[in-house]
Amino acid sequence: MYDTNLVLGGKEFTSRLIVGTGKYSTLDIMREAHEASGAEIVTVAVRRVSLPGTGESILDFIDTKRFTLLPNTAGCYTADEAVRTAYLAREAGMGDFVKLEVIGDQRTLFPDVPELIEATRTLAREGFIVMPYTNDDPIACRKLQDAGAACVMPLGAPIGSGLGIRNPYNIKIILETVTVPVIVDAGVGTASDAAIAMELGCDGVLMNTAIAGAQDAVAMAKAMKLAVEAGRLAFKAGRIGKKLYATASSPLEGLPDWTS
């Protein structure tokens, strides 16, 4: 079936699944899971080098010719920290993409939206392809789009919670509110959650823990690939409406007469 590519910052992607690089039991399993997921974008954190700098690099396990790196500003609590982190990532050679996170609270890891909007505006002006992690709030998403975001990434549920898409109605309203791609970021626990996001009409799904934390991360990565594809196909196919009562799918005409 014909489908368009996911376009972010003028770059086209066939896969609509974006995956993380954290929490895997080993880096070899991470590499295998990335392969199984079919993802073309992987997100990485920016952290201090351990000194002396002799340790192995995560990039020894990511083929940067194949995968687009998406550095994130995880752990940043102000716009200033997030902007500086994005600059560091770009200077390190990780490209212009940034998964922008400005966290408001350690317990919930919910975003600080005013700071997020400010950081989005600054980085978009500086030529970054800004992908902000935000609340499932249509107004926040509209403001992020106005600030220059390349897409909006509303959470389905708190980061790492695995609770799924807790407010599908808000996600629907966000899809009607913005014209940039909508990518659900955070909250996915299993394949059906990813499928639901895609069935709603989202342009993509980003996840880390759901894959890395699964008992068999590689198998879950494959499940997520299939779920994102299935959900996308179902959305494009156009589902039937929901009705309270039954509607027969066999013709009523031509029933034999069994009356005696």
Partner: peptide
């Protein structure tokens, strides 16, 4: 001095 590290989100 920083470099990329494994991570998904905060």
């Amino acid at each position: 001095i920083v470099r990329p590290m494994g991570g998904g989100a905060s």
